[in-house]
């Protein structure tokens, strides 16, 4: 085959590889996070973050409006400190609450924001104080089994 044709094909091949990598990065890996780069930062302290991780979505009414950028530990209060980035167009009142929910039974965890009704808005870098941590399924099942057992023993005792 002629050298020129080979050069063309090799060029196309290398470009294909780069294109594949770019598509993987943006479409599959969501490397960008581009939507939230310009967003503002909020903090929230939770008693328990469960399996929440960096890049977990932050949603309002099921619509993703930001993502978790960092999870740390507050050494004074022993609370999990979550940092997130929120789209700049979304302004949140100061009495806004945040909860950690799970998508479905085994799905991933996300932060759900419940906007409040106060006229003042949270400033970038502010902390959301009204929070509800992740529900610990182990604990919940344990409680259920325990109360069931307690209930049944009570009922058997009355008979």
């Amino acid at each position: 085959m002629e050298t020129r044709a080979i050069d063309w094909w090799v060029g196309i091949f290398v470009l294909l590889g780069i294109a594949a990598l770019v598509v993987l990065a943006l479409r599959v890996g969501n490397l960008s996070g581009f939507a939230y780069d310009s967003g503002y930062v909020l903090h929230a302290d939770f008693t328990n973050v469960g399996s929440l991780k960096t890049r977990s979505p932050v949603k309002i009414g099921g619509v993703t409006v930001g993502e978790v950028t960092h999870i740390g530990m507050n050494p004074k209060t022993y609370m999990a400190n979550v940092t997130m980035r929120i789209e700049p167009s979304i302004k949140l009142p100061i009495d806004t609450g945040a909860s950690i929910y799970t998508q479905g039974l085994l799905g991933e965890q996300y932060i759900a924001i419940q906007p409040g009704g106060m006229p003042q808005n949270l400033k970038p870098g502010a902390t959301i104080t009204m929070t509800q941590g992740a529900v610990n399924i182990d604990q919940m099942i344990g409680q259920m089994v325990f109360s069931k057992a307690a209930g049944s023993s009570k009922s058997s005792g009355s008979q």
């Binding site: 599959v28 969501n30 993703t64 991933e108």
Partner: peptide, 9 residues
């Protein structure tokens, strides 16, 4: 969405 939030570059 699930793929994007679980795959890191």
């Amino acid at each position: 969405a699930q793929m994007q939030s679980n795959v890191t570059f």
